[in-house]
Amino acid sequence: MSRYRILPYGVLVAGCLFAIFPYYLTLLTAFKGPGQLFGTAPWEPGLPPSTAAFDRLFGSGFGGYLVNTVAVTVGITVGQLVFAVLAAYAFARLSFPGRDVLFWVYLSTLMVPPVVTMIPLYLMMQKLGLVDTWAGLILPTVLGTPYAIFLLRQFFRTIPADLEDAARIDGAGRVRTLLSIVLPLSKPILVTVTTLAVVANWNSFLWPLIITSSEDKRLLSVGIALFKSEIGVDYNAVMAGSLIALAPLLVLFIFFQRFIVRSVAVTGLK
């Protein structure tokens, strides 16, 4: 193999190592004891491994943050999936005046940074009396996102309309056609949308930080950030929390990466 063919692989390997290195440091730091943090180089493991950082972490109420994050993530993800499917099917298959204009206007909201709408959204929640409540935490995103609706709509449009016509000839209505024909054929994109929603909601930080103040409603990302300020810079415990937050997402991607690649490829080609 010539050096010109080896060079691209060398660049890819270097890029891969560069991307993985922060996670490697997180893993090592999480299992170092207090004396090992500054007694060893950052890229050297602490011997013997210590779980003291995890003990301090869960002793500070971190377990409650983890439960809250799981509950909120599941609730918002289910809501986003249900409403995004209904909206995407309407945009893909139903005919009504202004359908395409409405879709592109809604999709254009992707160009607006979320931070721009943060203050108006907070004022709305304040007027409704939903500040520091579970409803205020969940409502702004539970009804679906433009990106999820776009992905689903593009995928639904790749499904032959003849299949739905045949179902309607057999007496199936819109809802039955959606549930029995469209959704079973859309497993890859449903997995992709679910995965993206889980990642976004699991890592959500700014809105939970603004809308909630009670410790019993604190989420994982906020808990890790405030953990630093409450007891000082405890790098071991912070890295332990980051490792716990990272692990479910890593497992999720490993199991469903083939569905993500397939669905994105299909929606991109249409």
Score class of each variant (00 low, 15 high):
residue 172 A to E: 10
residue 67 V to D: 01
residue 203 N to H: 07
residue 88 A to C: 13
residue 134 W to S: 04
residue 5 R to I: 13
residue 181 I to Y: 05
residue 64 G to F: 13
residue 46 G to L: 06
residue 76 I to W: 03
residue 152 L to I: 03
residue 79 G to Y: 02
residue 19 A to T: 13
residue 196 L to A: 12
residue 252 L to K: 00
residue 51 T to F: 14
residue 49 P to N: 07
residue 130 L to F: 12
residue 226 L to E: 05
residue 30 A to F: 01
residue 70 V to T: 08
residue 61 G to N: 05
residue 135 A to D: 02
residue 140 P to T: 09
residue 43 W to I: 07
residue 181 I to Q: 13
residue 162 D to C: 04
residue 156 F to E: 00
residue 188 P to M: 13
residue 50 S to W: 04
residue 223 G to F: 05
residue 266 V to P: 09
residue 70 V to S: 03
residue 123 L to N: 05
residue 190 L to D: 10
residue 249 L to M: 02
residue 190 L to T: 05
residue 120 P to G: 03
residue 158 T to H: 09
residue 233 V to G: 03
residue 252 L to P: 05
residue 134 W to Y: 11
residue 122 Y to P: 11
residue 34 P to V: 11
residue 264 V to M: 15
residue 139 L to N: 06
residue 210 I to S: 09
residue 45 P to G: 07
residue 259 F to S: 03
residue 10 G to W: 01
residue 34 P to D: 06
residue 235 Y to W: 12
residue 144 G to Y: 00
residue 160 P to D: 08
residue 72 V to K: 09
residue 106 Y to S: 15
residue 119 I to P: 00
residue 151 L to M: 10
residue 110 L to D: 04
residue 233 V to N: 08
residue 253 F to K: 03
residue 97 P to Y: 11
residue 193 V to D: 12
residue 94 L to N: 04
residue 258 R to T: 06
residue 175 V to W: 15
residue 151 L to E: 07
residue 68 N to D: 02
residue 182 V to T: 15
residue 246 L to Y: 02
residue 49 P to Y: 06
residue 179 L to V: 12
residue 85 V to A: 07
residue 69 T to D: 02
residue 161 A to C: 09
residue 14 A to S: 13
residue 44 E to N: 15
residue 36 Q to G: 08
residue 14 A to Y: 07
residue 232 G to N: 01
residue 163 L to P: 06
residue 62 F to G: 11
residue 230 E to H: 10
residue 228 K to E: 07
residue 75 G to W: 11
residue 267 T to A: 08
residue 24 Y to F: 07
residue 10 G to H: 01
residue 167 A to V: 12
residue 85 V to S: 03
residue 151 L to T: 00
residue 89 Y to N: 10
residue 57 L to P: 14
residue 14 A to N: 08
residue 44 E to K: 12
residue 92 A to I: 04
residue 185 L to R: 13
residue 259 F to W: 05
residue 169 I to R: 03
residue 146 P to C: 04
residue 163 L to E: 09
residue 136 G to A: 02
residue 75 G to N: 10
residue 207 W to S: 06
residue 261 V to Y: 10
residue 47 L to G: 11
residue 196 L to K: 05
residue 75 G to K: 10
residue 173 G to A: 07
residue 26 T to M: 15
residue 108 S to F: 12
residue 173 G to P: 07
residue 125 M to H: 02
residue 150 F to W: 10
residue 55 D to Q: 15
residue 26 T to K: 12
residue 251 V to I: 08
residue 232 G to R: 01
residue 183 L to T: 10
residue 197 A to S: 14
residue 153 R to S: 06
residue 253 F to P: 05
residue 137 L to M: 09
residue 232 G to S: 01
residue 86 L to K: 00
residue 90 A to G: 15
residue 185 L to W: 05
residue 230 E to N: 12
residue 244 I to Y: 01
residue 133 T to N: 00
residue 149 I to K: 01
residue 181 I to E: 14
residue 189 I to L: 12
residue 130 L to N: 07
residue 154 Q to E: 07
residue 180 S to L: 15
residue 37 L to Q: 14
residue 90 A to H: 11
residue 15 G to T: 05
residue 135 A to S: 09
residue 50 S to H: 05
residue 59 G to D: 11
residue 243 L to E: 01
